[in-house]
Nucleic acid binder design. Sequence first.
DNA 1: CTGAAAGCGCTTACAG
DNA 2: CTGAAAGCGCTTACAG
Lengths: 345, 345
Amino acid sequence: MTIRGKPTSLDIAHLAGVSQPTVSRALRGSPMVNEETRKRILAIAEQLNYKVDKNASGLRRQHAGTLALLLFEDPTPDESHINPFFFPMLGSITRACARHGQDLLISFQQFSDDWHAEYGDSHKADGLILLGYGDYLAHQGKLTKLVEQGTPFVRWGAVMPDQPGLSIGCDNVGGGRLAGAHLAAAGRRRVAFLGDASNHYPEFLDRFAGCDAGLRAAGGPGLDRALQVDAESAEDSGFAAANVLLERGLPFDAVFAASDLIAIGAMHALQARGLRIPEDVAIVGFDDIPAARIATPALTTVVQDTIRAGELLVDALVRLVNGEPAESTRLETSLVVRRSSGAAL
Amino acid sequence: MTIRGKPTSLDIAHLAGVSQPTVSRALRGSPMVNEETRKRILAIAEQLNYKVDKNASGLRRQHAGTLALLLFEDPTPDESHINPFFFPMLGSITRACARHGQDLLISFQQFSDDWHAEYGDSHKADGLILLGYGDYLAHQGKLTKLVEQGTPFVRWGAVMPDQPGLSIGCDNVGGGRLAGAHLAAAGRRRVAFLGDASNHYPEFLDRFAGCDAGLRAAGGPGLDRALQVDAESAEDSGFAAANVLLERGLPFDAVFAASDLIAIGAMHALQARGLRIPEDVAIVGFDDIPAARIATPALTTVVQDTIRAGELLVDALVRLVNGEPAESTRLETSLVVRRSSGAAL
DNA sequence: CTGAAAGCGCTTACAG
DNA sequence: CTGAAAGCGCTTACAG
C-alpha cells in the first residue's frame, strides 16, 4: 500500500481498521483506548513514519507547541556580536525545550522593534523567552504591554520585586560581593568599577553594590564613584572605559568589570599603558565566557550557572503556558580564581 | 467593539463590511482586490493588531513558513561547546530568515539522532539547514535519505561533486594555500598539521592539501604526513594532538591547525613545553573565532565569511523550498595575519 | 472503549 | 472585483 505524500491519521485509521479519532487518541496516549488497538495503531504509525501535523493540531488546540527565544542585541545591530555569555544558555534552552516536547523559534531583535506584537498573536509561539542585556528602563514599557496582552514570557535579567512578568537571573549582589571579598583578601584597596552602574542597568548596579559591600565587609573602603566609568558589555567599550579611568589620574590597584567583555577590553587598555596585571592592577570580571580562560593573564571572574538558567527559563515558561504557577528565581554565583587577580594559585 | 481573544480574519471582514476571503486576499496583497477596499481592510487589521494565524494558513497551504536549523555537536553531547565559529553564522541565518519572512526553528542534534525523520514530516519546517563539523562518511547515509524523502535541505560543509543535496562551504583548499604560502614566506620549512586529514573530514583534508600546495608553490617541501596528527575541532583535542606531535621528537618550525580551537589548544601545549611562539614555532589557525584575537600571541588565521555563508544558506534553501533552482557555492577565504606566525606587522 | 460530527482559521478554486 | 463553498488534518465534545 502506497500513500501519496505524507501519511495522515486517516491513512493510519484505514490501515488499522479503526476510525480516525481513535488513531488520534491512541497516538496521544489517551487512556480510553484499548491496549491492543493502541499497539496496532502505534506499530502502523511507526512503520509509515507518521508524524502528527503540527499545523492541524496547533490550529485545533489553539496553541503552537512552540516557544520563541528573542535575543536582543543592543549596542551592535548588524555585527552579530552577541555576548558569548548567552551561547551556552542558548544550548541549554534548546535542550530543555526538546525535553518538554517544545519547538524553539529563535529570533534576534532590537529592543526598538515591535517584537511584542509580532509574537503572542499569530500563534507562532505560545510563549517568549527574552534574553540580552540592555537598557532596563527603555524596554520596561514593552514588558508591561506583554503582560497586558496576556502573552506568557520569562526573561533573563535582574530579579526585582516591581517587575513585569517573570524573571530568572543570578544573584548579582552576591556575585559582586564575592568579587569584592576576593579583592580585599588580595590586599586591594582602591577598586575601580567599569560598567553602567545605574538603574538603567540593574544587573550592573547590583554587581556594583555587592562589590562595595564585599569590600566594606572586609574592613576596607568600599567602591569609590570617582573610580567608576560607564561601559556597555563589549570589548571596545571596556577598552574605552579603562582609558577614561586612566585619564582621571586617580590611583587604583584593582578593576572589577561588570562583564568579562568589559574586563578583557580594559586589560588591553591597561597593558597598552604598560601596567602589569595583576602586579599593578588586579582584574576581576563577570560571566566566565570562554575568552576569560584564554586571556593573558587568565581572568578571575564570577560564574553564573548558564545551563541551569536555561533549564529554569524553559521550565517556568512551560508552566506559565500551561496556566500553572511559576516563580522568579535568583541563581547562586561562584568565583573562579585565575591569575588576573593576583591570588596565589 | 470588543473581540474576545485574538481577532480573526472574519472579525476584520465584519468590521470592513466584506467577506472573509476578501480580507485574506487583501492581506496577502492579491492584485484582485480593489485599492479602496484593501486600504480599509489593512487599516482595520493594523488597528486590531491582527496577525494571520500561522497554523491555519500553514495547514491550508501545506507548508510551514518555517525553516529549521539543525546544529550538530559531535564530540561534546551535553557540554554545549558548540564551535564558536558557528555563532556569527547563526546570527546571519536568523537575519536572513527574517528578511525572507521565514521563521527559524533551532535544534541541537547528535548525528546519531533520528533528525532526518523528525523534521520534513510533521510540517514543522519546510526545509533544513545543517550546520556542524562531524564525520562526513558517518552521516552521508542520512543526507541521502533526506534527498529520497524529498526534504529540501542545505548544509554548511565541503563542496564536493558527488554529494547528496546542496552545500555551501568555503574554499578550504584555497584557505590552506594561503596558510602554506604565508608560512613559506615567513621562512618556515617543516610545517606540522593538526587535524583529521582523511576523507572522513573532507574540509580538513582540503585544508591539508591546500597548505601542502602553498608550501610547494613557494619552492619548499610540502606537508609531511609524519608531522600530521589527528584532532577534532576542540581545544583539548588540539592540546593532546600537540603533545603527540612533540613526543614524536621530529623537528618542526610551524603548525597549521585545521581550526582555531585546535590551534589554541596546541599553543597551550607548546608553551607549556617552553617553546616560544612564534620564535620557535609559528602557528596558523582556521576560522577566526573571537578567541583568536585574544590569544597570546594573537593567532594568525584563515577567515571564512560566515555572514555571507548564512545568507547563502538561507537563500539557497528558500529557493529549494519554492522549487526554484539553487546551486552549491564555495566562498573565498582570506588570511588575517597576527603575531603567532612571526610575520612583521 | 469507539465512532460520527463539528470546527479550529485560513486559502483557493469556482461562480458571478 | 467579490462572495459562497470546500477543505487542509487534526482534536474534542457528544452519543452510543
